[in-house]
Design a protein around this nucleic acid. Structure first.
Length: 799
DNA sequence: AGCACGCCGACT
DNA sequence: GTCGGCGTGCTC
């Protein structure tokens, strides 16, 4: 009999371990071991989990060196063959380890949790605190012993063999189980005293039930589990556990899905896409359609085509656009054929949605970034709505971009990708112009409504005129007018790169985070100051920590402050505020929008999260309070982001019968990003922005790679950043520019100073090889000094 | 990443 | 004399 060997990627993310390890497959496991199955394996002195990536009947190693696989974690593979391939590509594309890319493709619930567990033979010889920690099967967590300073004592018992240590591998969530009662024999006689039990039996006979849950019966008979258990005891019922999915709450809004007849323009676009689907062509379409042009309707029809062809579809939307409105629309169209994945779900809920996909119970997935890894095996269509959104890029390792993953999967599956947006990213539009993508345009609104007029209000003029509030006279008048007409208003506060902080008016001190070089952000809730980078939190001081002055107060324009001013200006208006503070709890997001949709408020005030996807017929005024904050970021995409933002919010006004109006307040009304947003001129903006990108040598004319060096001491950081730049200049071609090192915009995060280098290049065939060498150099020589290096091959924001 | 093996200072 | 510090090197 052939010797069976499995190649395993071990769940340890380190360079030295980043390769397959061979394991012997014991005979009794042979039929279970397939690529994509996870296994428990001994690794050195410990036990870990790993992914089987392939099997074979030979090994290059000495056979006797192989250890056997201990057990399988899964019955069915959690990763398809495609995923194993995708992971291999993705690790090279993002410069991370194979294990990282495989882990990112499975739901968090399945990722292993390792705990060291101490088992004791004889508890009576232990000290009292030690005994108190033990569970009833004489086990205790190693970490809790450490906390109680019982390691010394443990060592003694490890030596005598009275205690042993083992690693326990746990999963974060399990399938939810529900108790089901099955009827065995309802004809058994009950004693006259058992009234409740009799009621149950009567109900069973009446409805002729074969099985039911406690929830089912409680709708008709008031019973608790003891009664049912008594019936189980009498062999009338039998109890069993059954897997159920966690129910995801949806505030149903049936008005959303009306069957729409497509316009000629929509039909044409759809036909082009469907042709690619039918011909199994892996093409990338850039669907450029202005807000309200009916892109979603095209997605829905294209998905229908995919389903008709017997294929599956994945649709990505940015996190904040994954509104209940959007989800409901999909649920109404595709019923229980859809799984939904977004960050609002608990780990368990995400796991359940993932299992629906895994078991092929659904054929459509709507979700945020990570839904691109939906384990379908017969994908026919991939869609990224709002393709320009930065949330498609994961900002920590593996730093993947969902757009690139989508294109890879499309090529693998021979199917099209649709990138849709009203304001495509400059890179994507440039690619479409070059013919790399196929450009599809929807230049007018589906209901032929004109885009709303946009007024740019120069806030400098307001200031000159003596108006020091954050509302211009024009905006105040417009709000007053809409309130009188009982129409709704959306006010948008641009908070990108902006937050409220505490400032001492006497000495000018701002309260800084002790770990990061950044001002703490003021949160009214709990009167706390929080660091947005490390989570540090403290109470708002009543005295300046520097000069002890009591004239310390928070500054900056938070949504709460705007809300106060609205109340002052318009006492009669009902305002809903939507920001990180009011949407922290589960479902809060949905509730606020639902209330606004039900017209329980006149004004919806919010940040980024209200910029997208909202469609309320009564909204006729959109106000942008401060267009500038995103304009002056130290980021080459600042203008692009501002243009996109203003265009997106403007699209919220007057989508239906009533005419809309947009007021944008700014200190820089001549800026091309704002002027082009005012005239709804994407092409105009694109043309000017491309000139800037060309002049300053930014993407899409040049590629960028961002390298960050960090260390607890500033001198060491600067020193190694210099070494990095020097090394890059020596090892990259002449035409490639290495910029820096410079201190990062946030010079310290979590007690580590940060310096960065930027590589600008047009063609650098050896880039990844060189970067691998740099990483190796850093690992072997710099890491000992505590220097950390992180590389982002295609940075989307530069902070 | 862990964990063991291995070589030099302060203690019963 | 031993206990224990953390440097180095390996994990199929």
């Amino acid at each position: 009999m052939a010797l069976v060997i499995a190649q395993v990627i071990v769940d340890v993310s380190t360079a030295a371990i980043d390769r397959p390890f061979d394991y012997h497959v014991p005979a009794q496991l042979e039929s279970f071991i397939h690529p994509g199955i996870r296994v428990h394996i001994p690794f050195g002195p410990r036990k870990v989990q790993g992914f089987v990536i392939s099997t074979s009947d030979e090994t290059e190693l000495d056979e006797k060196k192989l250890k056997p696989i201990e057990s399988v974690v899964d019955i069915e593979p959690v990763l398809t063959a495609e995923m194993l391939e995708l992971g291999k590509w993705l690790k090279d594309d993002t410069l991370c380890f194979y294990n990282d890319t495989l882990q990112v493709m499975i739901p968090a619930a399945l990722r292993a949790n390792y705990t060291k567990l101490v088992k004791v033979e004889n508890a009576s010889v232990l000290s009292e605190p030690f005994q108190n920690l033990l569970s009833k099967d004489l086990e205790v967590d190693f970490a809790s012993l450490e906390k109680q300073h019982l390691i010394q004592e443990l060592k003694v018992h490890l030596d005598t063999g009275n205690a042993t240590i083992e690693t326990r591998i746990r999963q974060k969530a399990k399938p939810k189980l529900q108790t089901v009662y099955h009827v065995i024999d309802a004809s058994i006689e009950l004693s006259g005293q058992a009234k409740k039990q009799q009621q149950v039996v009567d109900w069973i006979l009446e409805t002729n039930s074969k099985s039911f849950t406690i929830v089912d019966i409680q709708k008709h008979v008031q019973v608790a589990t003891p009664v049912l258990d008594a019936l189980v005891e009498k062999k009338i019922l039998k109890k069993s556990k059954q897997e159920v999915y966690r129910e995801i709450e949806l505030l149903a809004d049936t008005s959303i899905d009306k069957v729409v007849t497509l316009t000629e323009a929509q039909k044409e676009v759809l036909e082009t896409i469907n042709r690619a689907q039918q011909n199994q062509k892996s093409e990338t379409f850039l669907l450029h359609g202005i807000t309200g042009s009916g892109k979603t309707e095209i997605y829905l029809h294209a998905i229908e085509e995919a389903l008709a062809l017997g294929k599956e579809a994945i649709m990505l939307v940015p996190e904040i656009a994954l509104t209940p409105q959007m989800v409901t629309r999909f649920k109404m169209r595709f019923g229980n054929q859809v799984a939904v994945m977004h960050s609002g779900l608990s780990v368990g809920e995400k796991y359940d949605e993932w299992r629906k996909i895994h078991r092929r119970e659904v054929r459509v997935v709507v979700g945020a970034r990570s839904a691109i890894f939906a384990p379908f095996e017969n994908v026919g269509l991939l869609i990224l709505d709002e393709e320009h959104e930065s949330s498609y890029k994961q900002e920590d390792s593996p730093r993947y971009h969902a757009r690139e993953v989508a294109k890879w999967r499309a090529q693998f599956a021979n199917c099209p990708v649709i990138l849709g947006s009203a304001t495509p990213s400059i890179e994507s539009y440039a690619r479409a112009k070059k013919g790399v993508y196929i450009l599809l345009e929807l230049p007018s609104r589906a209901n032929a409504k004109a885009l709303p007029p946009v007024d740019l209000i120069d806030m400098r003029e307001q200031l000159k005129g003596g108006n020091r509030s954050m509302f211009s006279m024009e905006l105040i008048d417009a709000i007053r007018d809409r309130l009188a007409k009982k129409e709704q208003i959306v006010l948008f506060l641009n908070k990108r790169g902006f937050s409220s902080f505490v400032l001492c008016r006497d000495c000018g001190t701002t309260v800084q985070c002790p770990n990061c070089d950044i001002s703490l952000t003021y949160h009214r809730m709990g009167e706390a100051l929080r660091c947005h980078y490390c989570g540090y939190e403290e109470l708002v001081p009543t005295q300046c920590p520097h000069c002890e002055s009591e004239h310390i107060r928070f500054f900056g324009t938070g949504t709460q402050k705007v809300e106060e001013e609205i109340t002052k200006l318009f006492p009669e208006a009902r305002t809903l505020r939507m920001d990180v503070d009011t949407t922290r709890t589960k479902g809060a997001h949905e509730r606020i929008l639902h209330h606004f949709g039900q017209r329980q408020a006149d004004i919806l005030l919010g940040t980024q999260m209200i910029a997208k996807g909202l469609d309320f017929p009564e909204v006729t005024l959109v106000g942008v309070l401060n267009a500038d904050t995103s304009l002056h970021l130290a980021d080459f995409r600042a203008a692009e982001k501002t243009f996109q933002l203003i265009t997106q919010v403007s699209g919220r006004a007057g989508r239906h019968e009533k005419k809309g109006h947009v007021i944008v307040q700014t200190y820089d009304p001549e800026h091309y990003a704002l002027v082009n947003a005012q005239t709804h001129d994407y092409l105009g903006f694109y043309t000017q922005e491309m000139q800037m990108r060309k002049a300053y040598q930014y993407p899409p004319f040049y590629y960028l790679t961002h390298i960050q060096i960090s260390h607890p001491e500033v001198i060491t950081t600067a020193d190694y950043a210099g070494k990095t730049a020097e090394w890059l200049r020596e090892n990259l071609s002449q035409s490639t520019a290495v910029i820096g090192p410079t201190a990062s915009a946030i010079s310290r995060i979590q007690e580590r100073y940060r310096y960065q280098c930027m590589i600008k290049y047009k063609r650098e065939p050896n880039l990844t090889t060189a970067l691998h060498q740099l990483l190796k150099l850093s690992r072997t020589q710099w890491e000992k000094q505590g220097v950390r290096i992180s590389i982002d091959l295609h940075p989307s924001t530069i902070v």
